[in-house]
Computed example of a mutant assay.
Amino acid sequence: MMKTMKTVACYFRLDSKLKKRLDELSINTKKSKSSILVEALELYLAEHENEDFSFAIEALEELKSGDLKSASKKIDKVVKKLKR
C-alpha cells in the first residue's frame, strides 16, 4: 500500500515575469504549477540545506587538529552567514 503525503497550502507572492514563466512552463510541460514549484523547492533545499554545516564541520576539524587561527576564520564566516 502506498503512503500518501499530507500536503498543506502555501501562499506567496511572485514577480509578474516569474509568474508568466511558470505559467508557460506549466502549459508546455503539461505539469501543474504546484508540482513544478515543489520540484524546484526540493532541488533548491537539497543543494542548500546543509551548506552552512560544511563550514562548521571544517572549523571543528581544524579545532581538533589545533589550527585555531584557520578555525576561527571559518567560524566567523559561519556566524556572518547565519546573521543574514
Rank of each mutant, 00 (worst) to 15 (best):
M1H: 12
M2S: 13
M2V: 10
K3S: 15
K3E: 13
K3G: 13
K3W: 00
T4N: 06
T4K: 09
T4L: 05
M5Q: 09
M5V: 09
K6Y: 03
K6T: 04
T7A: 04
T7N: 09
A9M: 12
A9G: 12
C10Q: 09
C10Y: 11
Y11M: 12
F12R: 01
R13S: 13
R13H: 13
R13Y: 13
L14S: 00
D15Y: 04
S16D: 15
K17T: 09
L18D: 14
R21H: 08
R21E: 14
R21M: 12
R21S: 08
L22S: 03
L22A: 04
D23I: 04
D23A: 03
D23N: 08
L25A: 10
L25S: 09
S26Y: 01
S26D: 04
S26V: 04
I27W: 05
N28W: 07
K30A: 06
K30E: 13
K31P: 00
S32N: 05
K33A: 05
S34I: 11
S35K: 12
S35Y: 10
S35T: 11
L37T: 07
L37I: 14
L37H: 05
V38D: 06
E39V: 04
E39I: 02
A40P: 01
A40H: 00
L43D: 08
Y44R: 06
Y44A: 10
L45K: 07
E47H: 14
E47L: 12
E47G: 14
E47Y: 14
H48I: 11
H48V: 12
H48W: 09
E49F: 07
E49P: 02
E49G: 00
N50K: 12
N50Q: 13
E51T: 01
E51A: 01
D52A: 09
D52H: 09
D52Q: 09
D52N: 14
D52R: 03
F53R: 10
S54F: 07
F55Y: 11
F55V: 12
F55E: 12
I57G: 03
I57T: 14
I57C: 14
E58S: 13
E58W: 01
E58G: 05
E58M: 08
E58K: 10
A59Y: 01
A59H: 06
E61V: 02
E61Q: 06
E61D: 04
E61T: 00
E61H: 03
E61P: 02
E62S: 03
L63Y: 00
L63S: 01
K64T: 04
K64V: 06
K64W: 03
G66M: 05
D67W: 02
D67T: 02
L68F: 15
K69E: 13
K69A: 11
S70C: 03
A71V: 00
A71W: 00
A71I: 00
A71M: 00
S72E: 05
S72N: 02
S72R: 06
K74Y: 01
K74M: 03
I75Y: 10
I75A: 07
K77F: 15
K77P: 11
K77C: 15
V78T: 11
V78I: 11
V78L: 15
V79N: 04
V79T: 10
V79D: 05
K80R: 10
K80L: 08
K80H: 08
K81C: 08
K83G: 04
K83S: 13
R84L: 08
